[in-house]
Design a binder for these strands. Structure first.
Lengths: 253, 253
DNA sequence: ATTATCTATAGATCTATAGATAATGC
DNA sequence: ATTATCTATAGATCTATAGATAATGC
């Protein structure tokens, strides 16, 4: 009965009309990789239209200007994932969780592993473009996403200190977390160009995971004893795997 | 006799003609901040001409295209400083020098202190633009400049290990150096937008120096004993001050 | 005489809009 | 009848060049 119930006809599909919200969403999704790759000024409305499979005029039906589309692309790209929130809720702060969360961050930032599998590094590119611009997107992301991690990791650091797993000194826990984060982000950043920038980029991506983990944990002040106890990469990998798989299946983990 | 022998006349000065090499140099110097701020596509030849105080046509007398001018700006901005080479030549690898070189790097990257005083963060911006592009400038810079630091710091790490100032483990000295470098670079990067991105950016710039030094040195594996002995910020500041002042006065330091 | 410099402009894009057309849902 | 979509194009830049002008050095 319904005319377009058959999906085999490509012409029908390509000429099919979408609702305003559907089309709007598709345009944004098509625009993300373009803006991420080339930046706001590096993309033309012509390219945006072509990538989205529509005319340039239609872009302006959905977005008053190229600026507005870019803003929507940024908003879309920094939606805080529900999975992360659920994951963090299930955590009781401890030394073990400190190590695990850092491992998780390392996988996400250095190896681009996310809840939906491995991603193209679109997000870091949008982030750099924003930092070279006004930084608004960067601020929004830290407000929406990173801060959740921060407070949890800070609590884990506190728990580790209470358990005697950290060398005691006067360092600021929040700062130390950011330094770890920064190390990972910079590794990721130097991976962006097709031709490798850093000498250590010869090997595979996960070749850096263990060294940078050790560096960060020592920087945080984890004792050698605690390191031997908690830094077992096989176990860490298994646990993170489980997090990534369970995500989206509700809180029944 | 000579019409423009008087220099008080501004019109004469503004109409004065320069040699090809002088003008070329001035155009490049005027273009650096523009390209650093806005990126290649964010700057028009009109702006470049205005900033250099010449017509657009003259730009094309000196550079075949905007691309070529950009390439020259990059080449100009990553000239390895003679001062650094001289400074590094005068160093004998040791734990003390390891700490000092890291302090020096921190001052340069986080606080923008250089041989000619404090700089605008033009260089890091060019670097980020390059990383979002093909990374050629980044590779060239590491080839020209950073690698000199790397080999010296690696030798310092080796010396520190030999002196028993490092906890002994299997970490890769070169990697560990890069992680330190990355931490500093990322701190710098998040400082770029006018509106601060990171919560820790509330205070003054040098508020981060001590914490990040401690983080890096612990990450490298400096023992608590060696840390107490060598990490005296007053002395470090004095020594770096001396380096910066002596630079350019020849090898007689 | 040479060459540094400018004015004026061609030709190619690029953003955005006006107005026409055709698919959709009642 | 409504609205998603397109074609065609206006108007504003943007890069680059042609050809004219004026300062410089011999």
């Amino acid at each position: 009965m319904v005319p377009n119930s058959r999906k085999s006809n490509k012409k029908d599909e390509s000429k099919r009309r979408l609702s305003s919200t559907e089309r709007r969403r598709l345009i944004i999704e098509a625009a993300v990789p373009l803006f991420a790759q080339e930046g706001f000024r590096g993309v033309t409305t012509k390219q945006l239209a072509k990538q989205a499979g529509v005319s340039e005029a239609l872009l302006y039906q959905h977005f008053p200007s190229k600026d507005d589309l870019y803003a929507e692309v940024q908003r879309f790209s920094c939606n805080p994932s529900e999975e992360l929130r659920i994951m963090l809720e299930g955590i009781t702060p401890s030394t073990k969780m400190l190590v695990l969360l850092l491992y998780f961050m390392t996988k996400m930032i250095v190896e681009h592993v996310g809840f939906g599998g491995t991603h193209d590094p679109l997000f870091p590119r949008l982030m750099l473009h924003s930092l070279l611009d006004d930084g608004a997107f960067a601020r929004e992301h830290f407000h929406q996403v990173t801060n959740r991690m921060v407070s949890m990791i800070q609590r884990c650091i506190a728990a580790a200190r209470a358990a005697g797993d950290l060398v005691s000194d006067e360092s600021d826990d929040a700062l130390v977390f950011w330094f770890c984060h920064h190390t990972l982000v910079a590794i990721n950043m130097y991976q962006l160009p097709l031709v490798p920038v850093m000498p250590y980029h010869g090997g595979s991506k996960d070749a850096l995971t263990a060294p940078v983990m050790r560096f960060m944990l020592r920087g945080i002040g984890l004792t050698p004893k605690a390191t031997r106890k908690y830094v077992q990469f096989d176990e860490l990998a298994a646990q993170v795997e489980q997090w990534l798989c369970n995500a989206g299946k509700g809180q029944d983990a």
